[in-house]
Structures are given as C-alpha cells and as structure tokens.
C-alpha cells in the first residue's frame, strides 16, 4: 500500500532557532495521527510545513495525488499546491475565525469551497450547505446567518463543515477542540470520529490534550524542542512511554 502522505526529514528553522527538524513519517489512508508536545515544541510549525503554509528549509512532503500518484508538494508550483488545498486537503484552524469568512453567511462559507472546485448551480450548493450544517449539528434556519452571530463551538463546527464539504482525503487540524468547553469538545470529538470513519479520512491532529488524542488518534508523535521525542501506537506511547519527556508529559495529566 502506498502511503497517502510520506514525510521525509522535514526541517524548518527561524534564523538560528530550530522550528522543527528531522521529522519523518508515513501516513496511510484512513489513519489518524496525533502530534502532541508543549507549546513551542514545534508542532504547529511542522503542521504548517506539511500543509504548505510554511516553506520548509529541507525535506520532502510526498502526497499520493488522485491523478499523478506520489508528488513532492514542497517543490510543486504554488497554483498546484493551492488546488490541492481546495480539493484533497483541508485545514482546520485552532481559531475558527482564521478559517472562516466572518462577513459571509454560513451557507456562503460552505458554498465558497464548492464553487472553488467548480460547482455553479445555486440550488445544489445551497442544498449541500444545508446538508452539511445538519451533519455538524447546526440548524438549517441558521444558513443565512453570519458566523459572527454563532457561538465559538458553532463557529468551529462550521469551519469543519466548510473544510469537509469537498470530500478531502487528508485533514490537518491545529488544536481543533482548544478553547472550547468540555461538553462542546465531546460533541466535536464524536462528530470528527464519525466523519473519519464514514468518509475514510486521514487526519493529522496537533493538540496538547492527551485525552483527545487517546480517543481520536491511532498513532501518536511526541515533539520536544523541535525534535520527535517518541512515536508509535497511541495507547502504547501513553501507557508505556519510553522517552523521559513523554513519561513526564503522561504523568503530569490530572485525573478527572
């Protein structure tokens, strides 16, 4: 089986400071990988390098495209990478505001991505938008409201709907449940897990919440000072951490 995403020796530095370095892994279709680590450990830098938002200083990010097979996305042209970002990839930002157009209606936010890939029939776009609002548990009668009129949790769900409507194969998520209260978090986790299974999505989730990765991620990568401290099966890394930093991280979690 060809990996959907093959990351080889990614390095990104900010001047003399290391963002992340020596990161390699393969992600297979249907797999969900979590990246954890304290703030400043380089996990968001890594995610942004993978998603093409930052240009890495070295390494390859090879994505198995539908048409041309495995292609290095670091060296592909900007328009190609943008097309990938609209079709096969999705990026869920930590702050929904970064991923939504706040002055456009909820339906417009979802429809925009559909139009970007060539949908033109207004009725169809609106129907799909309403269908997706339903899937993320937003009432259909809110379709014409702007996201500014939504709560934080609703905005986050709208962002997810906007990202998934075009049926991407790989979703990058940066702290998707950060800043939400726990009941909303649980809803979102339930939703994400259902979508991952039904659509066969692969996902890379950056978070610092170990409970979230235990429920969502098959595999886990632990980052420390820009390096990968440890990686493996999620429950193995959490139940039997090998690296000193992971042991510290796991033992620092408060039991509820």
């Amino acid at each position: 089986m060809t990996p959907l995403l093959s990351v080889q020796n990614i390095r990104k530095t900010y001047g003399t400071r290391i963002g992340c370095t020596g990161v390699s892994f393969d992600l297979y279709p249907g797999e969900v990988m979590g990246i954890v680590g304290e703030s400043g450990s380089g996990k968001s830098t890594l995610l942004n390098c993978l998603a093409g938002h930052l240009e890495p200083d070295g390494g390859r990010v090879v994505f198995d495209t539908r048409t041309d097979g495995p292609v290095d996305t670091v060296t592909m042209s900007e328009p190609e990478r943008r097309m990938l970002g609209r079709t096969d990839w999705a990026f869920v930002h930590q702050h929904a505001r970064d991923g939504l157009r706040m002055s456009v209606s909820a339906g417009g936010n979802i429809g925009e991505r559909l139009m970007a890939v060539g949908d033109r029939h207004y009725g169809d776009i609106r129907d799909k938008a309403i269908d997706w609002l339903g899937r993320v548990e937003i009432e259909a009668n809110r379709v014409d409201d702007r996201p500014t009129a939504f709560s934080g949790g609703m905005q986050q769900r709208l962002q997810i709907a906007r990202n998934l409507v075009t049926g991407p194969r790989l979703v990058f998520m940066d702290e998707p449940t950060g800043g939400l209260d726990v009941s909303v978090q649980a809803r979102l986790l339930d939703l994400l897990r259902g979508l991952v299974r039904e659509m066969g999505l692969s996902a890379i989730i950056v978070t610092h919440d170990l409970a979230v990765v235990r429920l969502l991620a098959d595999r886990l990568m632990v980052m420390k000072d820009g390096h990968v401290a440890e990686s493996g099966l999620t429950d193995q890394v959490l139940d039997d951490p090998q690296h000193a930093y992971t042991q510290l991280l796991v033992s620092s979690v408060l039991q509820v």
């Binding site: 493996g232 099966l233 429950d235 193995q236 139940d239 039997d240 090998q242």
Partner: peptide
Amino acid sequence: MRVIYGNYL
C-alpha cells in the same frame, strides 16, 4: 496481556 495487545512494548 498488555504486551500481547501491544500497548506495552
């Protein structure tokens, strides 16, 4: 058991 299930290495 956990070694067999793979959550202990």
